[in-house]
Design a protein around this nucleic acid. Structure first.
Length: 270
DNA sequence: AGACGTACCTGACCGC
DNA sequence: TGCGGTCAGGTACGTC
């Protein structure tokens, strides 16, 4: 489900949980990607003070110096409901004292929910090695050019590396490379400075547009209130194989890079 | 160190 | 209807 725009949309929806107090929790015995070292009992009776995001990780801070980190993996969802009925693939549930429930549901279980001390957030195994946020000032052409200048891998795979920039997944890198007219097959080190500049601008522009649209809803992804994002209606290249390129009318190709689908126009992307 | 393959899981969809 | 194959928005780890 989630790249940065989807996680950002969910995070914004979660803001309304501020000040809510945890009454109880439920955890399934299915194994997720990370097992929490701290006991979730520690957040019983704790009150939420802040909800924020780092890369694709949703972070919920509590007033007793503990924080939850939630990652949605490929198929994770967060559902906010007033009534509770445990459904298949519900792995973690918070019950608040006002009778509301927050549910983490993840069929493929590539996601996780982890509890730690708030002060240890930056040291968390998933957080500590992350590159800059795509909307930060730090993520600019000069920075990226430096990062790419010795990289022999293709530009698409390079940009999906969280050490270079976070939150850019398969959908948005496909769209960004099309927007900046750069072939996904190019070696990262072959990009000229102005091409890197265009790519940075495209990534920022497309992610912003996607957030404004509430993310992309492929399959049945919905936000907390059950609203669907509609950025998928703006896809120009992603999953458009064998359809006509908007600019040159030739057919969009699908190939596989690093085990993931890549969509591109051979004529427009050089 | 960097590049690359693969593993972790379930479900939806398609062709036979 | 059922079965096998393929695909899916992410991350981490092993090997060379």
């Amino acid at each position: 489900m989630p790249e940065l725009p989807e996680v950002e949309t969910i995070c914004r929806g979660l803001m309304k949980l501020n000040e809510k107090k945890v009454k109880n929790f439920f955890k399934s015995d299915k194994k997720l990607r990370i097992e929490s070292k701290l006991d979730f009992k520690l957040i019983k009776n704790a009150k939420i003070t802040q909800i924020h995001r780092r890369a694709r990780y949703i972070i919920i801070d509590f007033d007793n110096k503990k924080s939850l980190i939630i990652h949605l993996g490929m198929s994770g969802r967060i559902i906010f409901r007033k009534d509770f009925k445990k459904l298949k693939h519900d792995h973690f549930i918070l019950e608040f004292d006002d009778g509301n429930f927050l549910i983490f549901n993840d069929p493929r279980r590539f996601g996780f929910v982890d509890l730690l001390l708030t002060k240890d957030l930056e040291k968390h195994q998933s957080i500590k090695n992350l590159g800059p946020e795509p909307f930060s000032k730090e993520f600019n052409a000069k920075y990226l050019f430096e990062k790419l200048k010795n990289k022999k891998i293709n530009i698409k795979t390079a940009m999906m590396d969280n050490k270079i920039v976070v939150g850019v997944g398969n959908i948005y890198i496909n769209e960004s490379l099309f927007d900046s007219k750069i072939s996904p097959l190019r070696q990262a080190l072959s990009l000229k400075f102005n091409e890197v500049e265009n790519l940075v601008n495209s990534i920022k522009k497309i992610l912003k547009k996607a957030i404004d649209s509430g993310g992309s809803s492929i399959n049945d992804y919905v936000d907390l209130d059950g609203n669907v994002g509609n950025f998928q209606e703006n896809f120009q290249i992603y999953q458009k194989n064998d359809k006509k390129c908007l600019h040159c009318k030739c057919l969009i190709k699908r190939i596989v890079q690093n085990g993931r689908s890549t969509f591109y126009c051979e004529k427009c992307q050089k």
